[in-house]
Design a protein around this nucleic acid. Structure first.
Length: 197
DNA sequence: GCGTCGATGGCA
DNA sequence: GCCATCGACGCG
């Protein structure tokens, strides 16, 4: 009998296309929960299910780096959706963001946590740990995430229970600090700070 | 289980 | 002088 499990296994997971990313950051951040991030390197690959994201919705969003203007660092955010925006945080951690929306409107989604798949053992909880675990650094800034090196897969068989909270670490952002723009998979143990309101 | 703190570097 | 963090430490 073709069990659900069996048909699931034979399902070819579709690579997320450009159109998936070319939407409002808030919607993209929500829809990225449950999708699979893949990094192919040296003929091998690692993958993990995304369980936590944050939307940074444009230059008017005081928590968004683009609020400080269009600079060398933020340039990719003003470009085409589906590219990586990777920056150094606190002098130590690289962070992976996915550019969303449309050119000239600086939006991105920060990928904050994932669960390793395929028997891979890694701590992918928290944006710094996620980038480190996946081997993603500022070298990948501007990389097209619809290509063959780092890309995302949809997984229709996984239906997460998504909860919204305020974003982490943006208390300086005045009227934007409490905006409910963080999305978590409520049933995942890999979410960073699971009880954060 | 909580608060505090140091590491560390690019950026405006 | 900030920071879209992390992990170690001290407390009790």
């Amino acid at each position: 009998m073709p069990s659900d499990l069996q048909s699931r296994r034979t399902t070819k997971l579709r690579k997320l296309p450009r159109a998936f990313f070319a939407r409002e950051a808030e919607q993209l951040a929500h829809d990225l929960i449950g999708t699979i991030l893949v990094h192919r390197i040296d003929g091998k690959q690692v993958s993990g299910r995304i369980v936590e994201t944050e939307a940074y919705v444009g230059a008017h969003d005081l928590a968004c780096h683009a609020a400080k203007g269009r600079t060398a660092r933020t340039e990719v955010m003003f470009g085409r959706a589906g590219h990586a925006y990777v920056y150094l945080c606190y002098g130590i951690h690289d962070m992976l963001n996915i550019v969303s929306g449309h050119p000239e409107v600086a939006q991105a989604v920060l990928v904050r946590a994932a669960e390793p798949l395929d028997g891979w053992q890694a701590n992918l909880s928290g944006p710094g740990n996620l980038a480190k675990g996946f081997g993603i650094t500022r070298r990948h800034n501007g990389l097209d995430l619809t290509g063959g090196e780092i890309f995302l897969l949809e997984d229709p068989s996984y239906v997460p229970r998504i909860v919204r909270t305020r974003r982490i670490g943006v208390d300086y952002a005045k009227e934007w600090k409490d905006a409910p723009l963080r999305f978590i998979d409520a049933d995942s143990g890999a979410v960073s700070r699971p009880r954060f309101r």
